[in-house]
């Protein structure tokens, strides 16, 4: 069985089929990219996986468990973290507390313990902090630790969002257009981090991306979507040469 599986996933908004019977599988340790023109339903698939939308039909499996009906907050607890296309950070908090929220799924303390800040809470906080520091080091965010998010440049925010997702120690990470809004250098960094993430942290990556150079550099396999349907699936080179994909991009 595959590590992560979507079976016949569909999503309709009224008469519009945003996602139309999409099936795919992600193997453990793989980097899989989803490409496609605007409005192809890429982000919708992510929103279905993280349960922001409820699928009209179809099932989603993760580690052989059916997660289609799990509440949204449990998706993160199962080990699936995500980033957002347009950055959803906690604007009025510092970078550090943003990252600590990423640790939320590992917090075990009870409310009354926190009110008294018992030694167990304190010890837990230090463990969280140590993990966060590892991520900060991994993504070179040392300079921003105590800065509030509002006021940070876009590129940095993008990295912080990735960091927040990594802080939850995910097994599978969903990256929604990790390179959008980044310059060439930042995109380069991003591609290294994505590969390092797999190599050093053993994270499986599912990614929606427009920048084909990034896709080519990091992906093991690529899925091309158009109008909510799968056009082609395979290695980056195969998919890019697929006649339907070429047609979709050239608008023929």
């Amino acid at each position: 069985m595959s590590y992560f599986r979507a079976e016949n996933l569909s999503l309709r908004f009224g008469g519009l089929k945003a996602v139309d019977a999409v099936s795919f599988a992600v193997e453990k340790g793989e980097i899989l990219s989803i490409i496609g023109p605007n409005g192809a339903g890429k982000s919708s698939i992510f929103n279905l996986i993280s349960r922001i939308y409820r699928p009209t039909s179809g099932r989603i499996f993760f580690e052989d468990q059916d997660i289609t009906e799990e509440p949204p907050y449990d998706i993160a607890r199962l080990g699936i973290a995500r980033t957002f296309q347009n950055i959803e950070l906690f604007e009025n908090a510092t970078v550090l507390s943003n990252l600590l929220v990423g640790r939320h799924r590992h917090s075990t303390t009870q409310l009354w313990q926190e009110l008294l800040f018992l030694p167990s809470v304190r010890a837990n906080e230090k463990v969280h902090r140590r993990r966060v520091e590892q991520v900060i080091e991994f993504l070179d965010l040392e300079a921003y630790r105590d800065k509030p998010i509002s006021g940070l440049p876009y590129g940095v925010r993008k990295v912080i969002e990735l960091a927040r997702a990594l802080c939850s120690e995910p097994k599978l990470i969903l990256l929604d257009e990790p390179s959008s809004g980044l310059n060439v250098e930042e995109t380069d960094d991003m591609s290294f981090w994505i590969r390092d993430m797999r190599r050093e942290l053993g994270v499986t990556v599912l990614m929606v991306e427009h920048d084909m150079s990034l896709v080519n550099r990091v992906s093991d396999r690529v899925i091309a979507l158009n109008y909510g349907r799968v056009l082609a699936m395979g290695s980056p080179a195969e998919v890019q040469q697929h006649p339907d994909v070429v047609a979709a991009y050239l608008g023929a």
Partner: peptide, 21 residues
């Protein structure tokens, strides 16, 4: 502690808070 951070997270972005568990 985690609860307070969760509060702030909800204030700033419910969607992101949810996706962080």
């Amino acid at each position: 502690s985690p609860t307070g951070r969760a509060f702030v997270a909800i204030r700033d972005s419910e969607t992101a808070a949810r996706s962080m568990g």
